[in-house]
Simulated scan of single mutants.
Amino acid sequence: MNVNLGRWQNPWRLMLAVNAAVLLGVFLVKIRLPPYVPYIHLLVDYHYGFTKRALIGAIVAVFTDKVPVWLVFALAGATWLITLGLFAKLFRRTFGFDDAQLPLFVFTAGSPFFLKNFMHTLGHFDIYGCALAIGLLLIPAQSIAYVVVAALVAIVLILIHHINLLMYVPTIAAIVVLRFYLVQGITRQNVAVGIAALAAVGILFLVAQFAGTIDVSYDEFLRHLQGRMADPSRTDLLAFGYIWYQPLSKELADTWARMPSNILGVPVFALLIWLHTPLWRYFARLIGALGSELHRRIVIAAIIMISAGYLVMFAIVFDYSRWISNWAVCMFLVLHAVKMLPSSKDVPVIPSDDRATTIFAWVVTLIPRVGIVRPF
């Protein structure tokens, strides 16, 4: 009994338990909210030909003609659990699960940017990019087949939603460079395959963005979606059907019209990032300890590239809380990729007995989520 009590007196283990309780609370709140955007993504398929944002709905259409609302939470919940399992496996493989690594696990898995916000955005497409990127960190990267698999992953993500070109494809590209090209070296063959992969992904994005629109009238489109609903009376869930007709110019105009109010959330985002200071310091030490100056420069360039993609997203679509959360998740994933590279020295872990670190970790633990558009 004394041994078990002692284990729970460890504040880092207690933080994990509190995180689990917070996640449960976020889930109970989430399932009571109408899944407007997630549900309509399950209804849209390729009925009218190639259509952007339609892959998930097309897969659902293979198995059922009528889509119940609960399927949003069933599919999204299963995807969330798979992502949790994949991340736990990745963390164990990269760092281990001893007590010394608990602070790092709390600052990543327990971050309001990560699993807790994915729970709040249950049913949105963001988590697919994260799960597939984790998969690329787990599988072997010893042959050119790895580059091909990564390209297929990027293609799937763009078919799910073309904004993944900015959201997760840069992180996938960074993982491929760090895990394959820096380790296996550059040859004429693997460079050619890499260029071909980038071209294929880029062309698909342009097709999805500019040729993936629906040619029929909006009313006809809504009638088709209503015909796929298990409960056609829930027409309120079709309120976001216009996003399949909205041109890029309209998205830009809407985003900049909301900019004066949405920009007020930036200090909050900065505060949330600052609360992860022990994690960022550890990340910087990992980069500084890399055995090659070239590797360090490429890692920094990858971080800049990923961040630049998110800056572009900030200018295009106004779901700022989602974007900043996914940016942080991408940093967590790059952290794992960096840890896999050869290092010139051991890097001290995040201290578990530092008072400031513990306070930051408790605050991070107690924050339930970041949100979708505005903070919280």
Rank of each mutant, 00 (worst) to 15 (best):
V334N: 05
N10R: 11
A211Q: 15
L225N: 02
L206P: 00
D215L: 12
D254W: 06
K345Q: 13
L152I: 15
R234I: 04
L311Y: 14
H161I: 04
R297Q: 10
G194T: 08
F314S: 02
R179V: 02
V22E: 06
D45C: 09
S321Y: 05
L55S: 02
Q189E: 11
A308G: 14
V44M: 04
G309Q: 05
R296I: 09
R7K: 12
S217I: 08
R369W: 11
Y128A: 03
P368W: 11
F118W: 07
T79I: 15
Y320F: 14
G371D: 06
L248N: 03
S344A: 15
Y128H: 08
G265A: 13
P351E: 12
V177Y: 03
S292M: 10
S111F: 13
G85S: 06
D98G: 10
P267G: 03
T277S: 13
N2C: 04
L122Y: 07
I367A: 07
F114M: 06
P38D: 01
C330V: 01
F87W: 15
D319M: 06
L166G: 02
I367L: 14
R188M: 07
V3A: 13
L55Y: 05
F118V: 02
V148C: 03
H162E: 15
A289Y: 12
I273S: 03
